[in-house]
């Protein structure tokens, strides 16, 4: 990996962390509902720099993010980690299939993030399949909506990045 790429990854990780912290400030109707804006950064990294880079950024975000929030190694940390790993892996697989654009990738990421979290909740915290089955569809539905939002953001950002690099090449 080139030195320049390392700087870029550090910057992207910082962006992901900022979004991760910032979205907590947005009031949502249900307390545990989050937008997952950090996934925008993860997805862009995945598309531009590949799986390892996206994984790195996710881990940096989850670990440092939880340290900033004071939840390191706590239940939210475990859920963030499992969700993050699931979503990166799923998005990478979806990217390999090559039929999905950013929107589809974002949806895949959101879906598997939530599936991973539900799995973590079930395995680590409450072995109550009934509550989880009732909760799961709602979470996955909301996840689909936020996935669309993030996917549109990724499309928007990617187009701008493309325009910017085109300008650089033309001049």
């Amino acid at each position: 990996m080139q030195q320049r790429d390392k700087y870029r990854l550090a910057l992207l990780a910082a962006c992901a962390l900022a979004l991760h912290g910032f979205e907590r400030l947005i009031p949502t109707p249900i307390p545990w509902l989050r937008f997952g804006f950090a996934n925008i950064i993860t997805l862009i990294t995945l598309i531009l720099y590949g799986f390892n880079a996206a994984l790195t950024i996710t881990l940096i975000r989850v670990i440092i993010g939880s340290m900033l929030m004071g939840t390191f190694l706590g239940p939210p940390f475990i859920m963030s980690t499992v969700g993050g790993l699931f979503s990166v892996a799923a998005m990478w697989v979806a990217l390999q299939v090559r039929v999905f654009g950013p929107l589809g990738l974002s949806l895949t990421g959101a879906l598997f993030h939530n599936l991973g979290q539900l799995l973590a909740v079930y395995v680590v915290f409450i072995q109550n399949l009934r509550s989880i089955l009732i909760l799961a569809p709602v979470i996955l539905f909301v996840g689909t909506l936020t996935g669309v939002l993030n996917g549109l953001a990724v499309i928007f950002i990617m187009e701008h990045l493309k325009k910017m690099s085109d300008n650089v090449q033309n001049t």
Binding site: M69, T71, P76, M79, V121, F125, I126, S131, L135, I139
Partner: peptide
Amino acid sequence: GTPTAPKGGVDATT
């Protein structure tokens, strides 16, 4: 009839 939703199952910091 309905079981209580898991409290703290999915929360604000995940």
